[in-house]
Amino acid sequence: MPAHSFRLLSLGIGIVKLLRSSDWLIVPGVLLLAFFFVAPTVEIALSSIFDEGLTGKHFERFATKGAYVEVFRRTLVRSVWIGILCVLIGYPIAYFIVHRSLRTQVFLMLLILVPLWTSILIRTYAWMVVLGREGIVNNALIWLGLIDKPLRMMFTTGAVYVAMIQILLPIAVIACYSAMTEIDRTLPRAAKVLGASPWKAFRHVFLPLSLEGALTSFVIVFMLSMGFFITPALVGGRKDAMLANVIAHNVEQLNWGFASALALLLLVATIIVIVVVRLLANRFVGVRSVGMAP
C-alpha cells in the first residue's frame, strides 16, 4: 500500500534528521505532529491520486460533474467574506475593550466569551426565534404595520452570514484582543508626542502592531468557516451548501478517494487565501519606510 509505506518513510527521515541535530527535545512534539497532521495529510494527498493505480479521475469528477466547482467557489468566497467581516467588526470591538480599565476589560471579555459556551446548534436555532416567519423581527414589523406578510429572512444566504458571523465573531474579537494587549501602551503615546495625530498614531503604530492579531483572527475565522456545515444547512437556503457537506457525504458513501481530493483542494485553497491575504495586508498596512541607510 503506497500511502502506508510513504508515511513510514517520511517519519523515518524526520527522525533521522532530528537525532542528528541537538534539538532532540522536541522529538515528542514532532512525532505527535507527524502522526496526527503530516501523515494524514500525506495520506489524503496520496489517496486522492492513487485509486488502483495513479489516476486523475477524482479531480476530473470534481471539475466536470455535478456542481462541485460551484459549491467550492461559493464556500471559498463566503469564507473569505465571513473572515473579512468578522475582522472588520471584531477589531473595533477589541480596540474598544482594550482601552477600558482592567476591570471593565475582564467584564467585557466575559460577555464576549459567554456565547462560546453555548452549542452551535442551539445558537443556530436561536436565530429561527429571531428571524423566522413567526419570529421576533417579523412580529415586530407586522405589529408596527410596516409589513403585512412575514418577510423571508430565515433560510437565506443573508441568514447564513448573520448566524455564522454571530458564531465566529467572539473568536475574532479574542484573537484581536490578545494581540492588542501585547502592544506596549506607551507606544501610541510616544507616537503622539512625536507629532502623530490620533489617526496617524493608530495607522502607523497601533494598526501595524495589531495587524498580526487581525490576520490571525481572519485566518482562524476563515478556516473555521471553510469547514462549517451545520449552520449553513440549518439556516441557509438551497444554494448555501458547503464543500464540507459534500466531503462528509462522500466519506459516508465510502468514496474516500474523491473525498480526499476535495479535502486536498480545500487545504490548498485555504493556504493560498492565507498567503494572499497576508501579502495584501503587509502591503497596505505595513510600514512606509524612508529607505535604507546608504
Binding site: D184, T186, R189, A191, P208, L209, V287, M292
Partner: peptide, 9 residues
C-alpha cells in the same frame, strides 16, 4: 518606547 515594527532609521 521604540516602535518595534520599524527599523532604527
Amino acid at each position: 518606547s521604540l516602535f518595534p515594527h520599524m527599523s532604527v532609521l
